[in-house]
Design a protein around this nucleic acid. Structure first.
Length: 206
DNA sequence: AGCCCGATTTGA
DNA sequence: CAAATCGGGCTA
């Protein structure tokens, strides 16, 4: 996707990201997947956002820049979460990618997510449907599968080796929305319907 | 310097 | 249902 794509208002961009393809040209092979679930974080007014109250630190800095860059952070000391920075300069908004449907590079994803099973001989050909779902149906899981971490903090998502591409064209009626996950601390913002997903899609988290 | 906690995942 | 695991953010 080009720079213009990322300039749409955040809630609109969140819906537009559904069906897009995330592509990682990894040193060991091509990884790609279709985005099926996202959450919007709306900046200083949003109690659930890392930029709530205008918090501006080394970690949140990239959100204060132009849209279309990667905001990546470590959560619970062991997982990374991948976000697309959204909104104009000085509007620190972002969209968390919560789940994707794996498309290319399944064997490499298996190595990243299930190293033990990979060494025991599990491949994309012998992968049960249940495990295929578990490859990328959560924000931490997809970062593991795609080997995305702090190396890509601030990366321009219109550029290789980590970028977004056109894929599925969705209709409005294919998209569902509801409250975001695991933000019970966020008081009034807790119930805002800023989580979006493709209706009935098997790779949505939870 | 110290303390608390988190936009998660896993396995008992 | 609790543990894993650590940097950020806030207090002092």
């Amino acid at each position: 996707m080009n720079r213009a794509f990322f300039k749409q208002p955040t809630l609109q961009l969140a819906r537009a990201l559904l069906g897009k393809r995330i592509v990682h040209e990894h040193a060991n092979g091509l990884l790609s997947g279709r985005i099926v679930e996202v959450e919007a974080y709306m900046g200083p007014e949003d109690r659930a956002a890392h930029s709530y109250g205008g918090r501006r630190t080394t970690r949140t800095e990239v959100m204060y820049g132009p849209p279309g860059y990667a905001y990546i952070y470590l959560i619970y000391g062991m997982y990374h979460c991948f976000n697309v920075v959204s909104g104009p300069i000085d509007k620190p908004e972002a969209i968390l990618v919560r789940a994707v449907e794996p498309i290319e590079g399944l064997d490499l994803m298996i190595q990243h997510r299930f190293p033990q099973k990979a060494v025991q001989g599990l491949t994309s050909r012998t992968l049960p449907h249940r495990l295929k779902r578990q490859l990328t149906n959560g924000p931490g899981k997809l970062c593991r599968a795609f080997d995305i971490d702090h190396r890509y903090y601030g990366h321009d998502l219109s550029q290789s080796p980590l970028m977004l591409e056109d894929d599925l064209n969705l209709l409005t009626r294919d998209i569902a929305c509801g409250p975001r996950i695991n933000i019970q601390y966020a008081e009034d913002a807790r119930d805002y319907p800023w989580r979006f997903w493709i209706k009935d899609h098997p790779f949505v988290s939870k």
